[in-house]
Structures are given as structure tokens and as C-alpha cells.
């Protein structure tokens, strides 16, 4: 047989041959088929990588139990296996919760809602200041202006005071009055 003129495969070409000999050029492939040295080296490399994988497989722990499909009567909920009855119970409970959450009494008796609040987001600084002033004024005196002077304050409280004194006389005031009267008599 004529000696092979093609040089031996270099280390990268040997690895390429381990991955797939089809990846080599036709010349390299034909050299590999004729050259015992290169063939031995490719086989040695392949054996080494295979040996690492085999060793890893042999040293891997074994699974403890056999996987079996769950009983047909059983179902899964949130990744856990549960019986059909608890699952049904949970479903009923969820429906009830949903009904309570969405409950609307009959006859359009809807639950009281908050009155619509004015949108203050778009107010100018002046308008906002005025709004706050009005709020402060309401806090100070919530009675509307039209009702402020329906009764004079003096008159109103005077009447009430007289009436109270008539029903429940002021003991201290009476004692003071008696004292002043006796003093006047005494001096007289």
C-alpha cells in the first residue's frame, strides 16, 4: 500500500472526529480511515470522555422509589394530592366566598357609598388656598351664614339662662344675694 501523503490529524481535528467524523473534510476522513495512529488517538479520546460519563453514572445515587401515577379517585390542588371530597368542599367554600364578596341585596338596596368628592387635583394654587380657607371656616363655625343671625346671641342665651335659673336656682348666687341683703339691712 502506498504511504499516506496526508499529515496526521492535529489535536483539534482529532476532537472534531470525536464529535462527528462527518465534520472532517473528505481528505482528513480518508486519512483517518487509513491511518492507524490517528484512529487510535480518536478512539482513545472518545473512550476517555465516555469513561468520565460512565463513572459519573456509576457514582450517581439511585432513585429510592418508583414513580406511580396517582389514584384516579384522587385529584391535585395547589400541587398537593387531595381527595375528591375535600376538593369539592374547597370549591363550595370558594363559591360561597365569591357570592359573599359580590352580594347585592334585593330591591336595589345597595350598600351606602361615599359621596363623590370634588377633584382637587386640577386646582390652581389660589383656588386651592380658597378651598382650604373655606374648610377652615367650616371647622370653626359649621353653621351657614344665612342661619347665623336668626336669633341674637345675647337674647338667646339670656332667655335660656333665666329659664334655667327659674327651674334650678343658682345656690351660690342666691346665697350671695341673701348675704348682700342682710348686710344692707345690718348697715341700715
Amino acid at each position: 500500500m502506498a504511504p499516506d501523503a496526508h499529515p496526521h490529524l492535529n489535536s483539534d481535528q482529532l476532537l472534531q472526529a470525536v464529535v462527528s467524523e462527518n465534520e472532517l473534510t473528505r481528505d482528513l476522513r480518508s486519512h483517518l480511515n487509513r491511518c492507524a495512529t490517528c484512529r487510535l488517538e480518536v478512539d482513545r479520546l472518545a473512550r476517555r470522555f465516555n469513561a468520565i460519563g460512565r463513572m459519573a453514572r456509576e457514582l450517581s445515587p439511585d432513585a429510592l422509589g418508583r414513580v406511580r401515577l396517582p389514584d384516579r379517585r384522587r385529584r391535585f390542588f395547589l400541587g398537593r394530592r387531595v381527595g375528591l371530597r375535600p376538593a369539592l368542599g374547597m370549591a363550595v367554600a370558594m363559591v360561597l366566598l365569591l357570592m359573599i364578596a359580590l352580594y347585592q341585596p334585593l330591591g336595589h338596596r345597595s350598600t351606602p357609598t361615599m359621596p363623590a368628592m370634588p377633584d382637587t387635583a386640577g386646582l390652581t394654587p389660589e383656588a386651592e388656598a380658597q378651598l382650604f380657607a373655606e374648610i377652615q371656616a367650616l371647622l370653626h363655625n359649621p353653621l351657614p351664614n344665612d342661619y347665623q343671625n336668626l336669633f341674637g346671641a345675647e337674647e338667646r342665651f339670656g332667655d335660656v339662662q333665666d329659664l334655667t335659673d327659674f327651674i334650678v336656682p343658682d345656690v351660690e348666687a342666691e346665697a350671695e344675694e341673701e348675704l348682700s341683703t342682710s348686710m344692707v339691712k345690718g348697715t341700715a
Binding site: 483539534d12 476532537l15 464529535v19 462527528s20 465534520e23 479520546l45 470522555f49 469513561a51 468520565i52
Partner: peptide, 20 residues
């Protein structure tokens, strides 16, 4: 896949000797 495998073998070749 072949390209990734080839790159992987290039990287682990020397290490594989130490391994044994």
C-alpha cells in the same frame, strides 16, 4: 450541537487527563 460539543471537548481535554 456539534459546534458546542466541539468547544466543550477543547476546554475539557486537558482536564480529562487529570481526571483519570
Amino acid at each position: 450541537i456539534k459546534t458546542h460539543l466541539y468547544r466543550a471537548l477543547r476546554k475539557v481535554r486537558e482536564r480529562a487527563d487529570r481526571f483519570d
